[in-house]
Design a binder for these strands. Structure first.
Lengths: 207, 207
DNA sequence: CGCTGCGCTAAGCGCTCGCTCACCGTCGGC
DNA sequence: GCCGACGGTGAGCGAGCGCTTAGCGCAGCG
């Protein structure tokens, strides 16, 4: 988690914490399949096939198909939260920290779009306990962004009427990048990150 | 479950164009089920059950489960486009028209959240021809918003660096309301619409 | 060399899916 | 009062699902 991923665009090779190798290959295959077709439309045979294994191999490393989604969602949320925390705790004014948070968060949602899609849009497919665990992480994500905005307001740097509503809107804007971003489109993840950082600074009335 | 959504955004009772009555009841049931569990996780038995009919009754009115989704998506996109066109073609400056477009578009996504969820997030479940038809409607949606922003820039009313990128962001912000909005939450659709209209005016640097 | 443990496969179980089909009650027209 | 059309049902088909199980090949080790 603390690896060298200051990287402007492509991040360090993900999923390296997943071992053994066969379990990681299955998980990466599941991310691709879930992102492409959705959790419910993906079959265990499809996941195993993408990983070059038989359907039964999946159940050596994971108890159920849902456990795969849970692991993906957990790791993805940890990563997203890590990105935001890093930006929130750097030095500098609230404006710089918010711009940094938004641009890196957006870069992740665009650059690792397949992962982000699964993480952000397949939450309802999890069972109650797993969903509750993930929702707790999401509240922490919200708190990080709200914290920066509150700092900016307190410092007189931002002009915001509804802090919680604006926080919601900022996060919503960033998250939805995973829905529409197209790797073959005209924009790189870095460009979208820059554009969005500018838009968000306008939204909070940064001086 | 189906009640309590009495057109908070001031829209007409929807689905009235769907006849006969049994076909409409099935379609409304499908909207609810798709919005709750997703297209692929919804069974034809569930849809028919919600409409108080046997599973076979569905196939008297619709050829396949996918045709149901197609009809919902088509009608929903027509409605969304209609809302934007009405706002775009009213009288007044670009700022007023943009604020009107955003607030009514957001009101629809929040107030008719179940429909909007299906319309915006189940697009990939459609076959190639149906999806192409819907994508054409979405390009028209984009054009309406871009048109207002271009007007504002031309009139010196807005300050926008990347018109297409900002259009994308504005629409993305509005659409994602359908993902997070909660009828039992602290905000009414009207309040979110107002908040978002203000945020969007800031994004375009409205004078 | 034989034994053991383990990652993996081939086959398939029980179930539920989308969808079909033979049949039925109701009702307007003659 | 009978008849055909139509909207509906109950039962069930073939397919494909998530997941299980019996057994295989092979590396490590005496």
């Amino acid at each position: 988690m603390s690896t060298a991923e200051e990287t402007t665009g492509g991040e360090a090779e993900p999923w390296e914490e997943v071992t053994p190798d066969a379990a990681r290959r299955l998980l990466v295959a599941a991310v691709e399949a879930f992102a492409e077709r959705g959790y419910h439309a993906t079959t265990t045979r499809d996941i195993a096939g993408r990983a070059g294994m038989s359907p039964a191999a999946l159940y050596i490393h994971y108890k159920t198909k849902e456990e795969l989604l849970h692991r993906i969602s957990r790791i993805g949320h940890d990563k997203a939260l890590d990105i935001l925390r890093t930006a929130a705790r750097r030095e500098g004014g609230a404006g710089e920290r918010l711009a940094d948070a938004v641009s890196s968060f957006v870069r992740w949602h665009a650059g690792r779009r397949t992962t982000a899609r699964v993480v952000q849009y397949e939450l309802d497919a999890l069972g109650p306990e797993a969903r509750a665990e993930i929702l707790a992480l999401r509240r922490q994500v919200d708190a990080e962004v709200r914290g920066i905005i509150e700092d900016g307001v307190a410092a007189g740097e931002f002009d915001v009427l509804d802090v919680q509503g604006t926080t919601l809107a900022v996060l919503s804007l960033c998250i939805d990048v995973a829905r529409w971003f197209n790797i073959d489109g005209p924009r790189t993840p870095e460009q979208v990150g820059e554009l969005y950082a500018d838009l968000v600074l306008r939204m909070v009335g940064a001086k």
